[in-house]
Amino acid sequence: MINVVPLAQVSPEDAAAWHAVVEASLAADLPEEQGPTFEQIHAQLSVTGRDNRRLLWLAADAGGAVVGVAGLRLFTSPGQQHLAEMELHVTPDRRRSGVGSHLLATVVRAARDEERRSLVAAAPGEGPAGAFGAARGFRRVLAFDHLLLDVADADIADAEAEAEHPGYELVSWTGTVPDELAEAFASVKNAMNDMPMGDMDYGSQTWTVDRVRAMAEVLADRGDLLLTTAALGKGEMAGYTEIVIRSGETHRALQYDTVVAPAHRGHGLGLWVKAEMVRRLRAEHPGIEEIETDNAQDNTHMIAVNRRLGFRFHRSTHEYQLDLLAD
């Protein structure tokens, strides 16, 4: 017997139970990866984005032990109000016992109640999660390659960061974008809308000054550190790259966006800002040994940029989508 309980408020005990399930699930599916800490899970559950709502559930067995968790992220921004994103984990010892199916049915019902058109979920490229979803109507719509860069061994970074780019200059900041750059930053962020998204019903995002500030505030509220390096030229922001160091992280940084505006492409600016970010990490955060990024497998240009900088293949992730209006 499985009891699925919605979480309206997340207590430390709830977060600990969630963390234990995620830790066990990821240890089975991605044994070479270091899972999130309790503090990171607690922050993720208790601090939500400004452009989405989250619904959460715990699945407990007859003895009250939590054996599965599920989260539903409901996007609220114009252009993505049709979309929901699922996270679902079951402890390895309770897989194939109906726990995952029970949680999935709960999530799908909630997404339909919220009048969502599409439900997406990520799964490791290898492992049982993809087959679980495919057997229940999900189809694979996008594949990502995860790449790792050894910061100390990225020898080309210094030369690329010092390369001349006439008419352009680099600027960096930590946390929220400075007021004098906010409008330009919001504008160039909208260039993310042309990134390859395969067959995913992703929609589009509209970035404003308020929204970029809100994103930085959410990360700060979680205890994460946001680093940005941008290229300025011809009176506007031509491109930028972002790195996030999660709260308590001492080893790996996560690559967020890297974008060059269409009018400024073809000048090597993407490689330039990323190379400068590597130098910045060495100087400001010497304990960070590697950067993890992910690229859609058909984003050949950015993969080539990352390969030139020294990134190597690490693992793959597949995105699956359930079309909720298909029935």
Rank of each mutant, 00 (worst) to 15 (best):
E160W: 09
G63E: 13
I2Q: 09
D327G: 14
Y240P: 02
R279M: 14
L149G: 06
L119M: 09
A261Q: 01
L181D: 14
N3A: 07
Q40D: 11
L325F: 03
T176E: 15
S101H: 06
R315V: 08
H165I: 01
V141I: 13
A220P: 09
A122G: 15
A110L: 06
A184N: 07
F132W: 04
L147K: 04
G310V: 01
M277A: 11
G98K: 04
A296M: 08
V188M: 06
P78R: 00
A59S: 10
A275F: 08
V47C: 14
L7P: 08
A186G: 13
G266V: 07
R279T: 05
E114S: 15
R246S: 14
L271R: 09
R282Y: 04
P196W: 02
R211Q: 05
H251P: 04
E217N: 10
T174M: 12
M200Y: 00
R140F: 07
E169V: 05
F311K: 03
R222M: 07
E33V: 07
A105Y: 04
S118P: 05
D298Q: 11
T176G: 11
G98E: 05
T176P: 12
L322Q: 08
E180P: 15
D199Y: 06
V212R: 02
R50I: 01
A135G: 07
M1G: 11
D323Y: 12
G68T: 02
R213D: 08
A154R: 04
R252W: 00
V218T: 14
E164D: 12
V99M: 10
V188N: 11
V141Y: 05
L83M: 07
E290P: 13
Q81H: 09
V21K: 05
L142Q: 11
M215D: 11
Q40T: 07
D150S: 10
Q9G: 04
L88C: 10
A304I: 02
R282T: 04
M302E: 06
T106P: 15
D257M: 01
A131K: 11
H102R: 15
R94I: 00
A238I: 02
R94D: 08
L30V: 13
L170E: 03
L271M: 11
F144D: 13
R73T: 14
V244Y: 07
S97Q: 14
S11V: 05
G63P: 03
Y320I: 07
V171F: 02
R50K: 11
H267E: 14
G130K: 03
T317E: 13
G239F: 01
F311G: 06
V305F: 03
G233S: 06
A129W: 01
M200F: 00
Q40E: 13
S118E: 08
D150F: 04
F38H: 09
F144R: 08
I2K: 09
T91E: 13
I156N: 10
A253Q: 02
A20G: 10
G239W: 01
R54F: 05
P196Q: 01
A263V: 05
R95F: 02
G235V: 07
G239D: 01
I291C: 12
Q81E: 15
E85K: 00
E114A: 15
N299S: 10
R312A: 13
Q34T: 07
A283M: 04
A16Q: 13
E236A: 13
